[in-house]
Nucleic acid binder design. Sequence first.
RNA 1: GGCGCGUUGGCGGAGCAGUUACGCAGCGGUCUGCAAAACCGCGUAGAUGGGUGCAACUCCCAUACGUGCCUCCA
Length: 486
Amino acid sequence: MSLRFHNQRTKQVDEFTPQAEGQVSLYTCGPTVYDYPHVGNWSGYVYWDILIRVLQANNLNVTRVMNITDVGHLVSDADDGEDKLEKGARREGKTAWEIAAFYTDDFMKGIERLGLIMPTHITKATDYIEQQLDLVRILKEKGFTYEIDDGIYFDTAKFPSYDDFADLNLEAQKAGARVEFNPEKRNHSDFALWKFTPEGETRDMEWETPADLINDNETRQGFPGWHLECSAMAMSLLGNTLDLHTGGIDHVPVHHTNEIAQSEAASGVQFSNYWLHNNHLKVNGTKISKSLGNGITLDDIEAKGYDVLDFRLFVLQSHYRTEGNFTYENLDAAKNRRLNWRSVAALRHQTHDTLRDDNEKSTDEKSVSLYAASQALVETLSNDLDTPEAFKIIDDAFSRILGASVDDIHQHAFTGFIETIDELLGLQLIKTTPDIDDDIKRLIVERERARDNKDWSQADTLRSEIEKSGITVRDTANGSIWEYVA
RNA sequence: GGCGCGUUGGCGGAGCAGUUACGCAGCGGUCUGCAAAACCGCGUAGAUGGGUGCAACUCCCAUACGUGCCUCCA
């Protein structure tokens, strides 16, 4: 079995080989906790959840770090020392610390709602201030930094391969730039490692800048630049070279480019061997943005009567490197597909282990080797997380299940297949398809008896009775089958 | 102004130079006590114009439209 991923570092699909056999170190850029995440944010985390599951299915032990950005993420063009957290605090009349705590908590709940596997470490930027300052110190000692009025900056001109990762054309960008940049900066692409709190201001979140990092000896309060945290946390927990680093496609030209520059300038070795990026989700054909107010949240989805698992399935229908488009019409299609899959999964309660095993059944035209389908799922997903193709495999297998007589389905193998789907895709088909209770089973048997006696009115009465429990019955040549009422 | 990407049937969404993607929705039929399911079939997809191939949705060029980045962004 082999794993392949599209690697932004090499711009091609590469065979994946971890540094240490059987072990994978992985860093995922997490949220900035200043507001509720929207469907676009979540789609990325859903895809990286599949990545974890696929790595584990390949018998790899994953150590994963995800950060919580709770400081230092500057808003747009305002170069006035304000960051997203401080702004959010003003908006809601709270402190930046309270804002961070509230939305961090909300994010953690979202992880559970979507059934995402919890990272090994979830780290807050504010818990790693020391490590970030250490990194600044190393970069300063190596001559990569310079100080200007509002902070300590990284001199990108001293890192010659700066534009390789994103294939940037810095000269062209500079020539065509529409936004004024800080004239004190030496290069347009230079970025702040550490920002100083402006004179006369006090921030909710600020720390004393160590004297050895400042040119003159006066004490200055400050806070970390946004890019610094990821490098500091990744390297302190996972080492100087990671196996995998993931994030949104928007991070390629700035955030990840800067992470690479500052990390490799400090350590002298490659920061990450593989870089994976998820494409964005649009809403109704346009980019999701605060100003447009189209940032649909998990709560919005549920308020419209959908399950968050419908959204999860919707996301996985398209490949992670393809741009998606969220509309409620499309969510409807995903919901219907999930309900259909659920009906199939519920069939396992109505099958039995028979004398014939799964392999024997696979030789039967009408049957299907579910063991082979499980294998195919793992292999398909190992090929750059090909979820659309995985869905096809599931649909193929399910349609053969539906076409087969219940007596021809091997319960153990069938349940195993559903479990494999859940392990790989997290759709919770087992959990969402509980068996029916004995009272309903009795009614079903009673109804079958009525049918045998051709007592149709009694049979219909019993079916109505059964439907009060959210279960409906359909009749096949081999007996009655129950399903959940949609 | 600079740099890039996309355009597949009603909707979503894949692979592939020559065979049905798949799903959701729709229509017709078979089956059936009813209902449903299942199965079969249908709608002659590939933005437009050229080019290279025996052969192009699938490669190349151009045009149109859409969209992203260059400023924070998953």
